[in-house]
Write a protein that binds this DNA or RNA. Structure first.
Lengths: 116, 116
DNA sequence: CCCAGATATTGACACTTGTCGATGTATCGT
DNA sequence: ACGATACATCGACAAGTGTCAATATCTGGG
């Protein structure tokens, strides 16, 4: 067997840090703060929800610019932040950039915030 | 009866908006962005985790100032933001202010972000 | 090869934010 | 009443952020 000794069972599920189980390390705190910052903006929340609700769970910039009422460069900028944070995925097909959800990131965030 | 018609049953569970089910209203987006902003900072994440991990699930400022390595005014400022956002609860007992988790808010956040 | 359309990048600006030092306020002992 | 202690507030400053107009880059069609 190649499994670890696992001397402290409580450390076993150290895989995914949780906000409320033990004091966060600086690294973990910065890690999650980065993702949270990306989502902590009304416009970006709406962009994510628009992408999620769009057909095929994906949307291009031209689908999003009008619903949020902002200019194309501004929308592109917000989408870039969301992609950089791993919240959205970008796939370029032809002239269009299609944005879709990176579900794992939202799942990790949700699990992280969930008490207990 | 003074109740509304409720013509569309799908609106019934409109109780707790979710990021990924339908486009967010501006109000909902601003609402959640406000809470997310409060949590989207490494120092404040650590403060919340320190409070949660402390005995009795509560801590005073003097318990927190040293672990995060910041001045007392700065820590007080961060705690105020967390209280204003409904993430923490403040209870003054004697000379001390005891901060504790407002679990409902974190639960709402977690549920909001959870895909599907 | 050039043009039109979709998106990305840049530069600029007002505004917000994280931090600190100094000061104010409140509470408990003595 | 006084002083010490715990906390909150204020003023200031550098750094970061959201938005826009202008411009650059890329792609498909003719």
């Amino acid at each position: 067997m190649t499994t670890q000794p696992v001397p402290f069972p409580t450390q076993a599920d150290d895989c995914c840090p949780s906000l409320t189980v033990s004091p966060l390390s600086l690294d973990d705190a910065q890690d999650f703060a980065r993702i949270l910052k990306a989502v902590a903006d009304p416009t970006r929340l709406r962009l994510v929800s628009l992408v999620a609700a769009h057909e095929q769970q994906e949307a291009c910039v031209c689908d999003l610019t009008e619903p949020v009422g902002l200019g194309q460069p501004t929308v592109s900028h917000h989408l870039r932040l969301l992609v950089d944070a791993g919240v959205l995925h970008r796939e370029k097909r032809g002239v269009w950039s299609y944005y879709s959800l990176e579900a794992d990131t939202l799942n990790r965030l949700s699990a992280f915030l969930s008490p207990k």
